[in-house]
Simulated assay, not measured.
Amino acid sequence: MVTRVSILGATGSVGRSTADILVAHRDRFAVEAVAGGRDAPALADMAKRLGARFAAISDERALPELRACLGGTGIAAAGGEGAVMEAALRPADIVVASIVGAAGVRPTHAAVQAGRTVALANKESLVCAGAAFMRDARAGGATLLPLDSEHNAIFQALGRHRPDEIEQMVITASGGPFRTWPAGRIATARREEALAHPNWSMGAKITIDSASLMNKGLELIEAHHLFGVSPERLGVVVHPQSIVHGLVSFSDGSVVAGLALPDMRVPIAHCLGFPERLGTSARRLDLASIARLDFEAPDLARFPALRLAMEALEAGAGAPTVLNAANEVAVAAFLGGRLRFGDMAPLCEAMLDRFGEARDSGVLDSVEAALALDAEVRRAAEALVPAALKSAH
């Protein structure tokens, strides 16, 4: 039986790795839709490579170029937010949700409401609107398969164990390019230094989050909703080799860990083939050649973004929504040269303070309510960026 797949975020790093798996198993999969942001030639190439039936580009201004690139192929094309929603809702057995940031929340939410199996790489769906998103996923009969390497490792380690048998879940962090840097040097790090991840090849936003360790904080929030585990049973350990991706400690004292070389094709293949295993061309793990695996506690003083995320997870309600929105503004400002690296966490903390009443008013009752708060925080954070930059000089 052929499995139909749609890819939201097809031109990003996860989308490209997904395409590699699909091409390697053409007899098992057919591609219904691909969606991308604004790179029309890349999206067209992906659609043609995978034989997709439909291509959606979120930037409507790029639609004429997309149609020109797809001329004569028979692949339908559309542009704008509605087109991405259509891609999410077209008939597919699995939707790979890998749009980066809060932009991916609505189409991912639409897919779960429609009862699809969703391979989830858009962590913001759960960070921004976790309680409402999970409620709607259950109501729609959707299946969520964790695609991030850390959550996928935990998912595999859990097996069929009952929640009351779990003592702790731990996700690992490489430590990023600044793992050994002093705080003062981290604060003034340049764009190219922050983008030089030692182990993974990812998009700019996720790479910056990895450099600040914000990514680990967001992943803790995601794990809380995904696995239903309380904040005090979640943890982070820095592991520079990125071989161990996640660990689960059980009530009998045993620990089960997920190991693999850092290659996104491994968790993607697991999701696409689940519950079976798909073969991949990923390099195999040879522990003898690696020789050692190192672990250390994260330094919350040098990496305050992780501390803020842990506090937001503990606070619950709208705090993660506020944090995520402020962080997206901060990262974009840093990448655009409008904010120092060391000013990103203070900007996020300022927004958590400013929106204290909104964030603590209770669990956001819908995805749309979460996105409304997200938009409000973004406007306030953007207004603070020039002041933050001025104070830094």
Rank of each mutant, 00 (worst) to 15 (best):
V112Y: 12
V385Y: 10
I21H: 05
R191L: 12
G9T: 01
E349A: 15
V105H: 08
A288N: 12
S251E: 07
C128N: 13
T3N: 00
L313W: 11
A370Y: 06
A142M: 04
D27V: 01
R179G: 11
A383V: 03
I166G: 04
A142G: 01
N152P: 04
L339I: 11
A30Q: 13
S210F: 04
E222P: 11
P386R: 11
E167C: 15
L278N: 02
P320H: 07
G356Y: 10
A392Q: 13
H270P: 00
M134V: 14
A325I: 07
R4K: 14
G235Q: 05
I166H: 06
L218S: 06
D252Y: 04
N152T: 00
G130W: 05
E193W: 12
P64H: 04
F355M: 07
A369E: 15
V363G: 00
F341P: 06
V2A: 10
L43Q: 08
K48V: 14
D59E: 13
P304K: 01
A110K: 02
S361N: 10
G130M: 03
H224T: 03
F178Y: 07
L144M: 04
L364K: 09
Q168W: 10
V256A: 09
A157Q: 10
R233Q: 13
H239W: 11
P231C: 05
S212I: 01
D59N: 14
G159H: 04
L300N: 09
L145Q: 09
V127Q: 13
N152F: 02
R90T: 07
T280V: 12
V331E: 08
R38S: 15
I99L: 10
A380E: 13
G80K: 03
